[in-house]
Simulated scan of single mutants.
Amino acid sequence: MTSTPLAALLRQRALHWRRARRVTAMLCGLWFLTTVVTVFFARELATLTVLGWPLSFYMAAQGCSLIYLAVIGIYALAMRRADRRFVRAMRGAA
């Protein structure tokens, strides 16, 4: 069975979107866990301190925002890498 350029394109596109969905799902999971853990375990986290502040306060005021920013940055870098890999594969298939 011979592979046509269209079949190669479709395979590469499916692989690209499978990777994109996996990265998105993992980062959404991290975002969800960050939000839920901070709220759900606030009393337990209050017993730990960071620079004199209860960890629950620190996470609500600073930590979660920094994690969300990191999620955005990781997503941008991962998708840039995936897009470049996809473009290279398309140039190779052409």
Rank of each mutant, 00 (worst) to 15 (best):
L45I: 03
T35S: 14
A60L: 07
C64T: 11
A60F: 08
S65P: 14
L27C: 00
I74T: 04
Y58I: 03
G29R: 05
Q62D: 12
A70R: 03
M59A: 05
Q12A: 07
R22M: 11
M26T: 11
A82F: 07
G73T: 01
V23Y: 01
G52Y: 02
C64A: 15
T49L: 13
A70W: 02
G52D: 03
F86S: 02
Q12S: 06
T35F: 14
L48I: 09
F40W: 15
G29K: 04
L45A: 00
V50Q: 05
I67N: 01
C64I: 11
M1P: 09
Y75H: 10
Q62N: 14
T24R: 10
V37W: 02
Q12I: 06
V36E: 09
A82Q: 06
R43Q: 07
F41Y: 15
T49V: 09
S3Y: 08
Q12G: 09
L6T: 06
T38Q: 03
Y75Q: 05
G73D: 01
A7Y: 04
C28T: 13
M1W: 14
A7F: 04
L9F: 07
A46W: 07
L27Q: 00
C28E: 12
R84Y: 07
Q62T: 13
S56L: 06
F86D: 04
W17M: 06
V39S: 10
V36A: 11
G52V: 03
T47P: 15
A94V: 10
A42T: 15
H16S: 13
R22A: 12
R18F: 05
T24C: 07
A78P: 00
R91I: 07
G92L: 11
F40C: 13
T49I: 15
R81V: 09
V71F: 00
L30D: 00
Y68V: 05
S65E: 07
V87I: 14
G73V: 02
S65H: 14
L30G: 02
F32T: 14
R91K: 09
A70Q: 04
A76V: 05
L27D: 00
G63R: 00
L30A: 06
A82W: 02
R88A: 08
R19A: 14
R21S: 13
S56P: 01
A8R: 03
A78G: 02
R88I: 08
A89R: 10
T47L: 14
A61T: 13
R85W: 15
